Simulated assay, not measured.
Amino acid sequence: MIRLALAGTAHPHVDYVLSELPHQPDVELVGVSEPDPAAAARYAAGLGVPVYASHEELPDVDVIAVCGEYGARADVVVAALHRGAHVLADKPLCTTLADLDRITAAAQAADRTVSVMFEKRGYPVTVAARQLVADGILGDLALVASTGPHKLNYASRPDWFFDRARYGGILGDLAVHDIDLVLALSGASAGTVAGRAGNCSLPDRPGFSDNGAVLLGAGAVTATIEAHWMWPAASAYHGHYRMRLTGTAGTAELDWARGTLDVVTHDRDVWSPALGRPVRPAEEFLTALAEGRRPEVGTAESLAATRIALLAQLSADTGGEPQTW
Score class of each variant (00 low, 15 high):
3 R>T: 10
15 D>L: 15
16 Y>S: 08
17 V>Y: 12
17 V>F: 14
21 L>V: 02
27 V>R: 01
27 V>C: 05
27 V>S: 08
31 G>C: 05
32 V>R: 02
36 D>W: 09
37 P>N: 04
38 A>P: 01
46 G>M: 06
47 L>Y: 04
51 V>Q: 10
57 E>H: 06
67 C>D: 11
70 Y>T: 11
81 L>P: 01
81 L>K: 06
82 H>G: 15
89 A>K: 08
92 P>V: 04
92 P>S: 09
93 L>C: 07
102 R>A: 13
104 T>K: 02
111 D>E: 14
112 R>I: 08
115 S>K: 00
119 E>N: 09
123 Y>R: 14
124 P>G: 09
130 R>W: 12
131 Q>A: 15
133 V>L: 12
135 D>F: 08
137 I>R: 11
138 L>N: 15
139 G>E: 03
143 L>D: 13
143 L>E: 10
145 A>H: 07
151 K>C: 09
157 R>G: 05
163 D>H: 12
164 R>I: 01
172 G>E: 04
173 D>W: 10
173 D>T: 14
176 V>P: 12
176 V>N: 13
179 I>Q: 04
180 D>L: 10
182 V>I: 05
184 A>T: 03
186 S>Y: 12
195 G>N: 08
197 A>W: 03
201 S>L: 14
202 L>T: 00
211 N>T: 13
211 N>Y: 01
211 N>A: 14
213 A>I: 07
231 W>P: 00
238 H>N: 15
246 T>F: 02
247 G>E: 07
254 L>H: 02
255 D>R: 01
260 T>D: 11
261 L>W: 10
271 W>K: 06
275 L>D: 06
276 G>E: 04
279 V>E: 14
292 G>H: 05
302 S>K: 10
303 L>R: 00
303 L>G: 00
304 A>M: 03
314 L>G: 07
317 D>C: 05
318 T>S: 05
321 E>A: 15
322 P>M: 09
322 P>Q: 03
323 Q>P: 07
323 Q>I: 05
324 T>E: 13
